[in-house]
Design a protein around this nucleic acid. Sequence first.
DNA 1: CTAGTTGTACATTGTACGTGTACAAAGGAC
DNA 2: GTCCTTTGTACACGTACAATGTACAACTAG
Lengths: 135, 135
Amino acid sequence: MSVESPILRIDLESPVPVYEQLSNGIRGELVARRLRPGDHLPTVRELALDLGVHHNTVAEAYRLLAREGWLDLRRGRGATVIDRRQPPPSAQARIEFAQRLRDLAAKAIAHGVPRGAVADEMKALGSELNEGGSK
Amino acid sequence: MSVESPILRIDLESPVPVYEQLSNGIRGELVARRLRPGDHLPTVRELALDLGVHHNTVAEAYRLLAREGWLDLRRGRGATVIDRRQPPPSAQARIEFAQRLRDLAAKAIAHGVPRGAVADEMKALGSELNEGGSK
DNA sequence: CTAGTTGTACATTGTACGTGTACAAAGGAC
DNA sequence: GTCCTTTGTACACGTACAATGTACAACTAG
C-alpha cells in the first residue's frame, strides 16, 4: 500500500522547481490511478532522503497536492491519498488549459520537435485519456 | 506589414512572467504563420507603452525569440521576422515535450477540466497542426 | 555631421526557491 | 496518563530571477 520511490526522478538542473517536479510526478500517478484512495505516501523525510532534497521541499509539494484535494496531510500520521471530490467543471480552467496547450506546442516546435510529432503526441494522449474512463 | 498590438493580452497577476507571456503570444503567431518573414514588429517602446509594461521587459521577450531564430533584432532598426531554418529534430526535445504534455493534462484535470474536455482539446490541436502543413 | 530613434547594459527592488533549524501535534510503549 | 519518537509546519536566511529606472551604444534620416 505504500509506494512511490523509484518512480520519481528529480532533475536539479531543470528550470522547473523541484517541488513542482515532485507534485507533477505524483499528480501523474494520481490521475493515472496508480495511486488510489487509501494509499500512503512516504513521509516527507523519507522521500527527501531518497531523492536527495530537503524535506521542506517535499512538504511543499505535498501541501500543493493537499490543496488540490488529493491528499490528507497530518502531523504524526503522514500523507494519505483520499477520495477526491471532482471539482466543478470550470470554463475558465478550460480556456487557460487550451492556451497553455498551444503555448507548449509552439515552444516544442521552436525547440526542434517536428510539427507532425507534436500532433502525434497530442492525439495519442487524447485517446489514452478517453480510454482511461471519463470519471 | 507591421502588425501585432491588439492581439496580445498581458495578465500582470499571472504566475507566468510577462516577458514569457509576450514571447508565447508572438511565437504562437509565428507558428501559425500569421507573422511571416519580412514583417516588422513594433519597437520595444511602442509595444511596452501599448501593453503597460517596461520596454526592457518587451526587449527580453524579443531577445528570447531572436535566440530561437525567429527574429532579426538590431538597434536603430527594430525587430524583423526572418526566415527561420528549421532546427534539427531533437529526440531529447520530444521526450521533454511528451512529459510536459502529460504534466499539463494532469494539472488541467486537477483544476476542474473534465478528462473528456482535455482529450478533445488534444485531438483538436493535433489535427490543426497536421492541416497547417508539416514543414 | 547632427539629431532622433532603437535596442542594450547595468544597478536596484521585490519575489520565489531551496535549505537549516526549531517547533507543534499525533502515535506507540510502558 | 507519561515519555519519547515520529511526522508535518513555521520561520529566517542565501541565492537567483523578474520587472523596472536610468544611462548608453549603434543605427537611420536629414
